[in-house]
């Protein structure tokens, strides 16, 4: 009798994709087209508390009020917090691994009351400070996505 083979089988999911197509909504579309066409940021202001949301959305959570007033905000702002990422993983937008290390920050644009996430063009954590001023650097080719901003650059080094 043949010797019993002991193996533990695992099955791979294969190459099949699970594609999605997400609506950015009316304000989100305005935000992304302004980035693409005019290299400008817009937010939306709460009629009750006056808070300016960037990126825009339709409801102010704390007030549970509908947001309707689009307002321009600056392409400059300050670093709220940051990290320098040293581990790589496959970027879901490109299918490629982003080269490491790269700077990453939470940024408060002037005129906004909420923050956005984006890349920084600095990878030495000693040279990055909370509160440092930054400015958006736009891609030449823009498609209407957050990646139309290449990264934020430190204004003082």
């Amino acid at each position: 009798m043949a010797e019993e083979r002991k193996e533990l089988i695992k099955l791979e999911s294969g190459e099949a994709e699970q594609p999605f197509c997400w609506s950015a909504g009316v304000y989100g579309s305005k935000f992304l087209t302004e980035l693409r066409d005019n290299k400008r940021f817009v937010g939306v202001k709460c009629p009750k508390c006056g808070k300016v949301y960037v990126p825009p959305r339709n409801v102010c959570g704390p007030c549970f009020a509908e947001l309707t007033e689009l307002v321009p905000v600056s392409d400059e702002g300050e670093i709220v917090t940051f990290t320098v990422v040293s581990f790589g993983f496959v970027d879901p937008s490109t299918g490629k691994q982003k080269p490491v290390p790269y700077g990453y920050a939470v940024i408060k644009l002037d005129g906004a009351d909420t923050y956005i996430l984006h890349y920084l063009d600095e990878t030495d954590p000693q040279k990055i400070k909370v509160g440092a001023r930054v400015k958006a650097v736009f891609e030449e080719e823009r498609t209407g996505s957050m990646l139309d901003v290449k990264h934020f650059t430190l204004l003082e080094r």
Partner: peptide, 18 residues
């Protein structure tokens, strides 16, 4: 998926920011 996912943020990066 519109504003954050394509920027590669995940559990470790977001926690580093925090």
């Amino acid at each position: 998926p519109i504003y954050e996912r394509f920027l590669g943020v995940e559990a470790i990066t977001s926690s580093a920011l925090q």
